[in-house]
Structures are given as structure tokens and as C-alpha cells.
Computed example of a mutant assay.
Amino acid sequence: MEIILYSKSLDVIDKNHVNSSSKIFEIEFAQALAQYAKVSIVSYSAKSDMQYKNVSLFSLNKDETIANAIRTTICKNSLFKDSQKIIIAFGYDYRIFRQLKKVSKLYDTKLISYTFDTHKGATNSSGFLKKNLIDLYFRFGIRYVNTIDGIILFNEEAYKEMKLSIPFLISKVGINEESIVPKVYLRTLNSENEFRIVYSGTLIEYNSIETLIETMSYLKGQNIVLDIYGDGPLKSYVENCVKRADNIIYHGLVSNSQINSAVSRADLLINLRDTENYISKFAFPSKLIQYMASGIPVLTTKVLSENEFCEATFAIDDLDPLKIKNSIINIKNNPYLQTKKSEYAKEYIKEKFLWSNIIRDVIQFVKYD
């Protein structure tokens, strides 16, 4: 089996050098697929061809259309020689899938969408006219995706929302077992040390950034500090708030290796996802699985309802800043429970979220009958 992944954003395939959880997800997904198939990623963002572990990244010629650029890459690198050929692309961009379908027909391949997000999150801050024009464009994309061979999603609600009739697979975010940090959190806090909270991710409404910053306003004088890493539509809002707050530090968009370093020094990682938001029908915070693998305890909204998830995290179902403040203080005052959560979280993701298990269902779904 041979698979080509089309990526809009990947410029490297070493996850330590990327700066978003979605890029990490794409890289690890490709590496997991490579256990069963020859995998190549093609991207206009890549400046040069490169190989990392068992995955190749090929730079597409910006002067050519997607279809022609991929065809050139296939010929130049002797790709698609196997009888089972699959193209996978992320999302449902009409222009991209229309071009990829030309390649699919030319090489007699399956064409699969992996949709783990929705365009609506990025358009929340757009004006009325622009927002509706973008929405119209992507509705055409969804309709076009309904003509391809299949789609992979995180939530069946997304399949219903898109009104699709093609074959689908409900999958999960995965993690490699070697990425699970062996250490368990152990507090060494004393009266002179700060209790450090880390948020890393997109600065956007459905990640409850405003709620998080309001929560910190109630924690002044508690020796609790929040480090924020990331970029997004609410960047200016965060920067302005930080000027008036002495317990929040904004670090901007940094590499994954820098994030890992910050996480390793934290006392608590935080993920406040608005589960009532439309985006939650599509997306699952892949950063959350990386958090749980770090050995650092996690405070999160209840994005999963199973009891094991609540045992593995400090799970809350209310985005009231005062209640979140009380939860943080209770966590700070209970380091023993932090250690227990840290221990259980790693066992939980080993059982539920290893790529080695998740990818079997993906391969079964995409392969030819």
C-alpha cells in the first residue's frame, strides 16, 4: 500500500521543530501510517525535500497547480507503484479536493478526507459579509467531499452536521508510546516558589481564553502564575490583558521543543474547551493527549464523559471563572492527588490513545476490498 498525504502547512517532519499541535498531529499520523504503507507527504510549505524516520516530505512547485505539482512529484520520485494507492488530505477545501480528484482519477487511487476541525472557528472574528462568503465556499467544499471515497472524523456529530453519505470512520487523536514521559509529577513547592500553570494552543474563543484570563484575575496574590504559548485571533486581546496582569506571561508562538521544556517545569496544564461550541462537533484538542503524556497533571473541561478520563484529569464541566479559580486552589493544596492523577493519566492514554492501536482501524478503512 502506498499513501500520499497532502498538507497545507507542513514545512518539516521533525515534530520538535514545528509550532502547533495540528502539525504534530499530521506528522505522527503519517508516521503511524508508515507502519503499514509507504507514506509520502506533499506540501507547498516545504522548502525542500526531506526524509525523517520512515516518512518522506516532498516540496511542491509553487508555479504549478496542485494536480500538476503532485503529478510532477510522483514522476520525479517514482511514487505510486503499488497496486493499492491512497491520497489523504485534511479538511474539505473545495479547491484542494477538486485538484486532488484529478490526481486520483489519473492514478486510479482512493481519495480520503481527514477532517479534524471546521472552518467556522477561524471565521468567528470576521465581518458579516466575509464570514458568509467563506461559509458559502466551504459549504461547496463539503458538498464536493461527499463525492470522494470516504472521510475520517473525530465525532459522528460532524458527519451528521455535514449531511454526508460517503463511508466514514470515527477515529481518535493518537500518541506514540515513546512520547509518554516516564516521570510522575512530584511537588517540591515551598512558600517561596510559584505554582506554574501552562496553556499552549490556539488563542481563540472556543478555547475559553477570556475565561482563563478572568480566572487569573481572581488568583492575584496566590503565588500562582500562568504561562501562555500560542497564536490566534485573540492574540491582541491576550497581549493587552498581560500588560495589566502580574500573574500572566505571554510567550508567543514557539517551537514544540520549547513547549515541552515549559511543560516539564509546570505544576498544572490547562485545557478549557467550550464543549457547547459548534467547533466541538468536529474538533478534539490533540494538545490534551500530549498534556496527559507529559507526566504533569491536567485541569480540563470534560471533553470526554467516560469515568476513566475523569480519573486521569481534574475534569470540570463549568466554565465559571470563580469555580475554576477554586479548582486551581484546591489542586495547589493537594499535591498528593496531583501525583495520583499524573500516574493514572499515563496508563489511561496507553490503553486508549496509542497510535499503534488507532492506526489499525484507519488502515482497515482506507485499504481496498
Results as ranks from 00 to 15, higher is better:
Phe97Arg: 03
Leu354Thr: 05
Glu64Ile: 04
Lys183Ala: 11
Phe309Gln: 01
Met162Phe: 13
Gln364Met: 07
Ile329Cys: 09
Ala69Thr: 01
Gln84Ala: 06
Lys352Leu: 07
Ala315Glu: 08
Arg98Asp: 06
Val184Tyr: 10
Lys81Gly: 06
Tyr92Lys: 07
Tyr250Ala: 10
Glu194Arg: 12
Lys102Gly: 00
Val42His: 06
Thr115Gly: 00
Leu299Gln: 00
Gly141Leu: 10
Asn277Ala: 15
Ser200Val: 11
Arg265Cys: 11
Ile197Phe: 05
Val242Lys: 03
Gly252Gln: 01
Lys243Cys: 10
Val238Asn: 03
Leu169Ser: 07
Val362Lys: 01
Val18Ser: 04
Ile134Glu: 13
Leu322Tyr: 11
Ala158Lys: 03
Ser21Arg: 08
Ser217Arg: 13
Pro285Thr: 03
Gln51Lys: 15
Ile96Pro: 00
Ile4Met: 02
Ser56Thr: 12
Asp227Met: 04
Ser59His: 07
Asn307Trp: 08
Arg360Ala: 10
Thr275Tyr: 03
Val145Ile: 15
Asn334Phe: 06
Ser48Arg: 15
Tyr344Gly: 01
Leu33Gly: 09
Ser9Trp: 10
Glu351Cys: 06
Met292Asp: 02
Ala245Cys: 10
His17Leu: 14
Leu111Arg: 00
Val263Glu: 04
Phe284Ser: 12
Tyr36Thr: 10
Gln35Cys: 09
Leu169Phe: 11
Gln35Phe: 12
Val298Thr: 12
Asp361Thr: 08
Lys110Ile: 02
Ser165Trp: 02
Asn54Thr: 14
Ile175His: 05
Ser126Arg: 08
Asn155His: 14
Gln35Asp: 14
Glu192Val: 09
